[in-house]
Write a protein that binds this DNA or RNA. Structure first.
Lengths: 344, 344
DNA sequence: TTGTAGGCGTTATCAC
DNA sequence: GTGATAACGCCTACAA
């Protein structure tokens, strides 16, 4: 076996005194080939350490088995679980995935999309950055009819498919729950309202309040980045408020948990003084004391479904309706952080 | 713009009445090209929806800009952070990463390695599965001198590079800390002892005990999968013990946290009755009450370093010593779960 | 500064 | 059943 250079079908052909075409056919189980020849070739290939060159093959075949995934950041419970689900399905169908992070920046997202395009991925799975305001940069894909599936953070209406949960409904339900526990003055910590998903969570919250005749004012709305730091700052802000809320619904668990911790450290009791609710069902929700009421987000399943839909569009001969939304089942999980009464 | 067929540099060349070579050079920022021509080409390329064909490019260049990452499971704080670090460095250097999971199974790991090989990744980053007992399946890569960098869970001595932390030392230090807090009977929850990393943590623990003249017996050693379920079961087991330990050192935080929770739920006080320490500095460590003493594991940094080392081997003309180990700085973080005295 | 031409490793289309 | 040969799209000596 030669060091350095790769073994090609020519090398095999030469050593066997046959033509490269025959080798190629043997390797790809072509029907018009004698089984004796095929056997010889297969053995020689193994012997010589041959591996097919996927670049040459793809170049020739015009076919691609790599799919792209673009996410804001990989290192969150939510995203890493989604990706785990995607990877499992992808590898089951013989696809590879390449992953990149937009770091919550639309500018970087654009670059990533372009790179994916140039890398000729067969399809794209995307959860957009926080400040992504439009989907112009996906036009490249739409124009070429390369399927794009959005998940979690999505856009409507370019013939693409979205995999989501019902943000409005879950936010509404969890706010209703807080109201049911006797909260009269509920504060919402939300994410960037330019993102429909966070807007929907806010709307669900607001509608529940209005319906119950409770106050819903700007003072009770905090918009931030929903990370650890934001949670702590939100807590400090709440502590400084003249009229303190008796309930908090945050648009994610990390933020909720750190806010809760800050409030607790100041001597207030949860849920007696303030009820808390989050979103996502992150592992921290079950660690914090008291455990955090939250919305169960089927992350792993979302990854599986999104990937399955994408592969479907790639291999399915005729898809009737690839566009639209798949809304996954989700629901609230009631834990001690919001439980004042026995029955909810 | 033609539908269906891809735009090539030939199409651009034709429409601009110049040669394909000029187009190619313009596109790759070759120096010997007039900026006027380049501009024209870039515009035309954009206009016509051109994208470079990475297959043709790779075929021609014999170079690969895709690197493979194989991990047990993506969806843990530790692994997702490592990958986030890797991706950041990779994209900085123009590399893409393809990721797959071995699901903690050596059999699947073998398959993944083979797939990566056939996909002709330029290099490999691996943290091996729990039950991986040898590195025979990486021989393909070693033979072809394709660089492989192991991280966290590693193997010694095949000319490969390892990126690790000092498991022995950290385990030793944290056990010493528990002893310093007055613990006399410390239990260790460890991972699969076939894995050197978990063995090292056990050894550090044991040596600290022996040195202090404390008891170190099989009764005080629990080996399990270190996940949530294992943590709860460990807690239940401890509660059933005749001679209960007054300190627990678990080889990861998830397990430690759930064990702690189980013990606490049974009415015992932490750290007064039992001290707790974990490993990894997972987000849950700062959420649980009391906060968990742990070992800070520089995950993101590990991803960055591992990726940087790999790219180094790929591009560096002469690497003096690519083999061996890089040991990252880590250290214990003392929190309330083990703090009985004012000074540690 | 730009053009010409050959080859990277496959597979498909002809012949034989 | 097998062999010759022409693409696939790109890059890069070498020429001009």
């Amino acid at each position: 076996m030669k060091e350095g250079r790769e073994v090609t079908i020519y090398d095999i052909a030469k050593s066997l005194h046959i033509s490269p075409a025959t080798v190629s056919r043997s390797l790809s189980n072509h029907h018009a080939i004698s089984s004796r020849t095929r056997k010889k070739v297969l053995e020689a290939a193994h012997e010589m350490g041959y591996r097919s060159n996927s670049f040459a093959r793809n170049l020739r075949m015009q076919k691609i088995n790599v799919l792209g995934v673009i996410v804001p950041k990989i290192n969150s419970h939510f995203i890493s679980s989604v990706i785990a689900g995607m990877e499992e399905v992808a590898s089951e169908y013989g696809y590879r995935i390449i992953i990149s992070q937009s770091m919550e920046s639309m500018q970087m997202e654009k670059e990533r999309v372009y790179t994916m395009f140039n890398n000729r991925v067969g399809g794209l799975l995307v959860s957009v950055a926080c400040d992504t305001t439009n989907m112009k940069h996906f036009k490249l894909f739409f124009d070429k009819k390369i399927p794009v599936v959005f998940f979690d953070r999505v856009f409507e209406g370019n013939g693409n498919l979205n995999v989501v949960i019902d943000n409005y409904r879950n936010a509404y339900d969890i706010t209703r729950h807080l109201i049911g526990q006797g909260c009269k003055r509920i504060l919402h910590i939300g994410g960037n309202q330019a993102r429909a998903e966070y807007k929907e969570r806010y709307r669900g919250y607001r509608d529940a309040l209005l319906e119950a005749g409770l106050v819903c004012s700007d003072e009770l709305l905090l918009i931030n980045k929903l990370d650890e730091k934001a949670g702590i700052e939100a807590g400090e802000k709440i502590l400084r408020m003249a009229e303190r809320p008796d309930g908090v619904f945050a648009a994610n668990d990390i933020c909720a948990a750190h806010c809760l911790q800050t409030i607790k450290a100041a001597g207030y009791k949860v849920p007696e003084d303030i009820c808390f609710a989050g979103f996502n069902n992150d592992p921290v929700a079950e660690m914090i004391e008291p455990h955090l009421t939250t919305v169960n987000y089927p992350c792993y399943e979302m990854g599986e479904i999104a990937m399955r839909s994408l592969i479907n569009q790639l291999s399915g001969s005729r898809i009737i309706n690839a566009a639209g939304s798949i809304i996954l089942r989700s629901g609230i999980i009631v834990r001690a952080s919001s439980l004042r009464r026995k029955s909810s």
